[in-house]
């Protein structure tokens, strides 16, 4: 296509484009955070698809999760993460309404929740490793079982850890009056994403 022909197509394209300068109606920071979340979601999507595949093709029967894990303990971890998402949402709204004290308090509750979750995960890993769980094998059957477990929960745990680092920086900056409401909102989006991923891991790995 020549330049003249390309130029002739421009008005036609513009006529169909209704998004204007901001098709998502969000600031560039928020749009970039959403694009990051989608790409990070694809990472976990790939990991969960891989898990589904290795489980499907495993020649050895997959162990029953309740015989390996303490499901009430996993439920406690889920409770902690859901609660921390609730406090994070409250912090975001408080920051938007200019209630700095409430925002900081709820950010601190969220950080406590995040550390509690990581502590539970560290306990769970230690317990299973002591029982013989390794990346190369385990006492319950197919080695893919513990491979999936360590990779899925390890990646998720690393996201919780990086979320905590972001939250600690956000709360320090908020206390100094340097974080705008949007900064809290972006940190919140990442934290809720971590919670969202856990919903899938909890159901697909621990319950199904």
């Amino acid at each position: 296509m020549t330049q003249a022909e390309a130029a002739a197509h421009v008005p036609a394209l513009e006529a169909h484009w209704g998004g204007g300068a901001s098709p998502f109606g969000a600031t560039w920071q928020k749009t970039m955070m959403w694009i990051f979340i989608v790409t990070d979601g694809l990472l976990f999507s790939g990991l969960l698809c891989g898990y589904g595949f290795v489980r499907h093709v495993s020649p050895v029967p997959w162990p029953h999760q309740s015989e390996v894990f303490s499901i009430p303990f996993i439920a406690l971890m889920t409770f902690i993460l859901i609660t921390s998402s609730m406090t994070m949402g409250t912090a975001v709204t408080a920051a938007r309404l200019g209630d700095r004290r409430r925002a900081i308090n709820n950010l601190i509750f969220t950080i406590v929740g995040g550390f509690s979750f990581l502590a539970c995960q560290a306990y769970e890993w230690t317990h299973l490793i002591r029982e013989g769980a390794r990346l190369t094998g385990n006492p319950w059957g197919p080695p893919q079982f513990t491979q999936s477990f360590f990779i899925l929960t390890g990646f998720h745990g690393s996201h919780v850890f990086s979320g905590l680092v972001i939250l600690i920086i956000t709360v320090i900056r908020a206390a100094m009056g340097k974080t705008p409401a949007q900064g809290v909102e972006l940190a919140g989006l990442y934290w809720h994403f971590v919670d969202l991923v856990w919903v899938f891991i909890f159901t697909l790995f621990y319950l199904l």
Partner: peptide, 23 residues
């Protein structure tokens, strides 16, 4: 979580579609 905590229900449908359909 997506709608209420991440506020997708308050965003433009194009953003929600981009996120949900993409994944």
């Amino acid at each position: 979580i997506g709608g209420n905590f991440m506020h997708l229900r308050y965003e433009r449908p194009s953003l929600a579609v981009m996120v949900a359909a993409g994944i």
